[in-house]
Amino acid sequence: MLLEVKDMHVHYGKIEAIKGISLEVAEGEIVTLIGANGAGKTTTLKTISGLRPLSSGSVTFDGKDISKLPGHKRVLAGIGQSPEGRGVFPGMTVTENLLMGAYTRTGDFSKDLDEVFELFPRLAERRNQAGGTMSGGEQQMVAIGRALMSKPKVLLLDEPSMGLAPMLVAQIFSIIKEINNRGTTVLLVEQNAQQALQLAHRAYVLETGRVVKSAPASELLDDPQVREAYLGGELGAH
């Protein structure tokens, strides 16, 4: 297993947000966490990337226990994240944003930049534009491209579809597929369950801090309970 979370508990003050989540991500997979607002998806992701301390349980990455490792060292271990709300640096240009992604690395990044620009031709056109002046979709592209610049083994994506038009969502999802085809493992948090389940190999359904279901994504697409709760019930059948 590339990434393994065992019985993870996370607290905000006295309130327990994550009540013992266990999940696994194997190399080469796309795994998605779906669930409603407040189910603990973002917190789970933040805890894996080290932005939140866990109260108990463990996070193992690439065979090493990283539960106590600070966030910036997890980047070196091979975890790349596109954070919640994109987190593009507004005052930096697209290129500067991307180069921040390579902060932990040294050497020549022109090849890596070209690779990102090839995935997102839109960013190549706007490489000297300030991040803060770009549209939501473009910022999402910057956030994903920037995470790729650290050459991660696993890419954590926090709601890449948030606030985007349906056309753009489809485009972003096909690029995620492409990134995965090129060999990067993806852990995807989504509220847009329909799209996420079509893209992912496996999925976990989160409800108020617990995993209530885990199965191959295609099975969950046909699961009546999941359809009812996350895919708009019978309306989603069309």
Binding site: H72, Q81, V88, F89, M100, Y103
Partner: peptide, 20 residues
């Protein structure tokens, strides 16, 4: 560069590998 990143988005800076 690290300071600028921290100023603009501290969490994002941390997940870029900046020891904030």
């Amino acid at each position: 560069r690290a300071w600028a990143a921290i100023r603009e988005d501290e969490d994002a800076a941390e997940v870029m590998g900046v020891p904030t």
